[in-house]
Structures are given as C-alpha cells and as structure tokens.
Simulated scan of single mutants.
Amino acid sequence: MVNHGIVLDLVERLAAVADGATAAVPLGPGDQGPVTQTVAAWCARTGNELLEVRDGAAIIRRGHPPDPLAGLASGQMPGTRLWMYTNFDCNLACDYCCARSSPQTARRALGIDRVRRLAGEAVQAGVSELLLTGGEPFLLPDLDDLVAACTDALPTTLLTNGMLFRGNRLERLRRMDRDRLALQISLDSATPDTHDSHRGTGSWARAVAGIRIAQDEGFRVRVAATLPAGQSHELQPFHTFLDSLGIAPEDQVIRALAHRGNADAGLELTIESLIPEVTVTADGVYWHPVSADDTDQLVTAEIFPLAEAIAEVRRRFSDYRARANAATQWFPCA
C-alpha cells in the first residue's frame, strides 16, 4: 500500500533543492521498512536517487548527478596521452625548470624495460599518444631504443632542447621513425636575449640550429615556448619568427610559466586546478608533467599495472570536479 503522506513529503522537499543536491526526508516513527520501500520505489520511478537511510530519515539526491568528466575537450580525458620522464639530468640549468633539471641532477632514468612495458600497456589502456621528456633525453645512450619501443606502439612526441644533435647523438636521431615521431624543441623568443637569460648564453643559437637539423633530417618539429607574465608582447614577433623557420601554426606551442621546480614565480598549479595528464617517472605516477618532481602531485608509487594508475587519476579527477560542481548549486530563497 502506497504511503501517500511520505510521497507528498518527498515531492515537497525535493522541489526545494537543486538538481544534484540532497534532501533529508523523515520517515516517521515505527516500522520504517515499508516506508523505505515506498521511498525507494518512488525514487526509481521519478529519476531520483535514494542514497541511504540514517537517523530515521531517507537521504535522497534530486535527479542523478551529471558525469563530472562530461564536457571535456577532445584529448583532455585523463589517460588520452601518457607522459614519461626518461631522465632528470640535463645539459642546461634553466632558471624556471619545473623538473629542477641540471647537469648536477641525478639521472633517475626510467629505463628501457619500463618504457617498453609502459608503451605496451598504454595501447591496452586506450592511450592514443606517448610523450617522452626530461631532463634532456638525448643524454641517454639508449634513447633510440627507448623511442623505438614507443613508436612501435603509438605516435610519439620527444621533448628536447635541440642542442645535442651531433656525433653519436645525431646518429641516434637518424635511427628514429620519422613517420611516428615528432620532436618538440624548446625556444622561448624570436631573438637570443630572453631565451639566453633563462637558459644560458648561446643556447638560443644552438636551439635554432637544432630545429633546422631536425627539419633537414625529415622530422616534424614543434616548438614550445615558456613565457613568464609580462612578456605577452613577444608573442607576435615570436610567431613571425617561427613562421620564417617553417614551423606550422599548430606546432607553435606557447605555455605560461608555472610556479614549480626552480621557478620563483608563475601560475600556482594544484591538483584541484589542473586537468591531469598522466605522467610516469622512475619514482611513480604523477598528476601532470609540470609537477612530476613534487610529492604533492604524486598519485601512486606503483607504476604497474598502468591501467590501474590511469583509473585512479580519473577517479580522483572525477571527485574533484563533482565537489566543484556541488559547490555551485542553486540555493532557493523564494
């Protein structure tokens, strides 16, 4: 028998809250079993959700919460791309390096065995692109093997400062798959002054030379610039210069300086404010490559199975977005 009193109470209390919000509906004294069954049946018919019964009341969510991950732009779903820090040592000591890399930094190499396994598991986990970064990957004597393990599995981007394309390292570059590999070379300005002030005297000229070598070798080249606040006036001259080098507009990447690693200023980036990009280092799985040397964004020290690490990142991200959505609910006053 339907308890019409409780049904009217349900309608009245849920009408006063926003979609996705909750209401507590008292069940009354006595045997609450039949009343709870009525509430559960009513929720099922009306598209609401009975969360629990406690302290003599039914806790009900109006409607069903939207998928917190719905509406993400193409490519933003965590796990679409997988970043790997091949190493942390570098031939440069840039004053705003998010990974704190330098010639004195310990290598902390990921290693060929883990890279090969990660590339294989990435395919099964639905990853569509691999990105290798450092440190400076071209310091590694087996970089061509690392890259081959990745390009055999998925399209790959290799981030580098472009300054080491000579001798044995140039030969390693020449052994890489031009059809499946893009090189992303760091260059911060159209002229040497700004770039060299952060990365070292002469580094701009050597990076530009590296871009030209990579192009001559038949690789797709992306160029990525890090611009501190107040340097937006450099954008147009920079784009004009990259156009002159033959860098396609879609391969000209501009990113803001982040207050991470060596940087003493920049954007404050937290787990709550960042759309995650799953990042693996020798130390574990991190939320984002910009913070892969910071313990506050370590997701798990267990790299494998990769699918479980990706699932954990998605779960946490979904929770953060759901809480943010709940904090902006409509509150009826009339």
Rank of each mutant, 00 (worst) to 15 (best):
R108P: 05
R114H: 13
D283I: 00
R220H: 00
D296T: 15
V278H: 03
I185A: 00
R321Q: 13
Q252M: 08
A307V: 07
F238T: 08
E136D: 06
R178W: 07
A190G: 06
D193V: 08
E171Q: 04
C98I: 10
F317P: 02
Y320M: 15
P228Q: 10
T105P: 09
V147G: 03
R212H: 05
E250L: 12
I275E: 04
A122F: 08
D9A: 14
D294W: 05
M1T: 03
R61C: 06
A24T: 11
L131E: 07
A41Q: 10
E217Q: 15
P78L: 09
P276N: 11
M176T: 00
G284W: 01
E121W: 12
T191E: 13
M163R: 14
D95F: 09
N91S: 09
D251H: 06
V208I: 13
I271F: 08
F304I: 11
L140A: 12
D142W: 06
S186V: 05
N168V: 13
M84W: 04
R316W: 01
L181Y: 02
A23C: 05
V115P: 12
D142G: 02
D296W: 11
P137R: 13
L69H: 05
D144C: 11
G284Y: 01
A209M: 07
R172D: 09
N48S: 05
A41I: 05
E272V: 10
D19C: 01
H233M: 02
A148E: 01
H288S: 09
A263Y: 09
E272A: 15
R116F: 01
D293T: 02
T160M: 07
L306H: 12
W42P: 04
G79S: 13
D319A: 15
T194Y: 14
D31M: 01
G261Q: 01
F138M: 15
W83F: 14
R314F: 10
M163L: 12
D67C: 08
L269D: 07
T226G: 04
E308C: 13
L154Q: 11
A258Q: 10
A229Y: 11
G20Y: 06
C43L: 02
Y286K: 09
S74K: 14
D144I: 12
A282T: 12
D319P: 10
V285A: 12
E12W: 07
W42H: 05
E234R: 08
A73W: 03
D142L: 03
G266H: 08
S244P: 11
A119V: 05
R54I: 15
Q231W: 10
M84E: 06
T46W: 05
R180N: 03
Y286H: 15
E121Q: 15
L170M: 10
